[in-house]
Design a protein around this nucleic acid. Sequence first.
DNA 1: CGTGGGTTTGACTATACTCAACTACGGTGG
DNA 2: CCACCGTAGTTGAGTATAGTCAAACCCACG
Lengths: 219, 219
Amino acid sequence: MPDHQAYLNRLRHWRVVAPKGRVIYEEGEESIAFYRVETGCVRLQVNADLGHRQILAFCLPGDVFGLQMDGPRDTSAEAAAVTTLSRFPLSALAADTWEAGPPNGAAIAGLISAATRLSTTLADHLKGLGHGSTEDRLLWFLEWLAERQGVSPFGGVLQPPMSRRDIADFLCMAQETLSRTFARLVERGLIRVRSDRRIQLRPRPRPREEAGEGLQRAA
Amino acid sequence: MPDHQAYLNRLRHWRVVAPKGRVIYEEGEESIAFYRVETGCVRLQVNADLGHRQILAFCLPGDVFGLQMDGPRDTSAEAAAVTTLSRFPLSALAADTWEAGPPNGAAIAGLISAATRLSTTLADHLKGLGHGSTEDRLLWFLEWLAERQGVSPFGGVLQPPMSRRDIADFLCMAQETLSRTFARLVERGLIRVRSDRRIQLRPRPRPREEAGEGLQRAA
DNA sequence: CGTGGGTTTGACTATACTCAACTACGGTGG
DNA sequence: CCACCGTAGTTGAGTATAGTCAAACCCACG
């Protein structure tokens, strides 16, 4: 759907399939290719010692990641679920290998657009973490996922492709806290968790007077 | 110093000066130009209601920001101090306006590199916020600033161009907490705060055995 | 039917936030 | 020159939120 896809398709590339957990590249490696997610989910992350992880971004179908011209990777990329990718070797960006003639202004715009999109994603992430309680953060995440999966934020059913551990590391909270936060949202009637780990977003929290605790209801 | 600067200089651009607090652009505006910081400091931020701010990035001399081909700005940009900028209208990216002939592979690489650098910055920010106490976060910030200002992380003297309020909003903590955290670092001998708001980084925290609590040293 | 990973629950603690007052500094004007 | 004000920053007290450690749980899989 986004414009830049058209230009990417003119570059040399091919499909690869990554099973869940597969490492696409690791922090510190030299960059030799970039990728577009076709199906599944990739997480960009940094691994601190002792299993402490920080997930910077989830890449869903259509997202381009790993696009940097030089230098070592600043994150690792791993498949958070079984994933198919299009792999674009960086060498394909050399002007003489373009299949459809030399790049024009629009093509450049498309590439920059692709490169920029990750910035937007990261910026959104920072905004989401920025302030707010754990509930706010989780709701923000669910909303984001709803938008990306094309389901209504009111009543839609989400199917998160990533584990709860992943979500916790993405939202910068302990997985226990995430679990409790889910429970609280269920209590408040904002979501319903299905047996198969799918999540139904509930329409309106049914305006109750719980908000005004001190209020006396007129009899 | 970075490669992409050379390619940027071939684009049409001019200098502008922004006094402290000046708004360069605002969230939601259409993008018509991008910028490079020459001197001073720019903050990229989102303004929530009620003065709640979240600063996504500080741009120091050499940094390029605002480079996106279309769509509304996803952040505001304001001068955090008196700042001089180079302004590049987006129209300059149309191939026919290049002053030194049509773009080549290297030029494209340079532009993508410029676009990518912000991603790296945001990624670093996420890593910094990720985990760690307020002390960790502040130390990470000071280290970053030291590197950007080219002073030694051991004994160097920093001159933060931004206010403490800005730093607090950048590190996602209340300004009171930031103040206390500064105090704690001073107490621990890690930094010294000069009268003119400059900060001296102290060499070594005097290696104590607190780190290896459980370790037995072979006699 | 047992094993194991992913997830949930419980009890306790610590860290950082809120509200609030107070201080230090710089500029402005009488 | 000094009094005044506004902004930026600090300090204090109390509280709440989320982290840690630990154990139970559940479901998929062999």
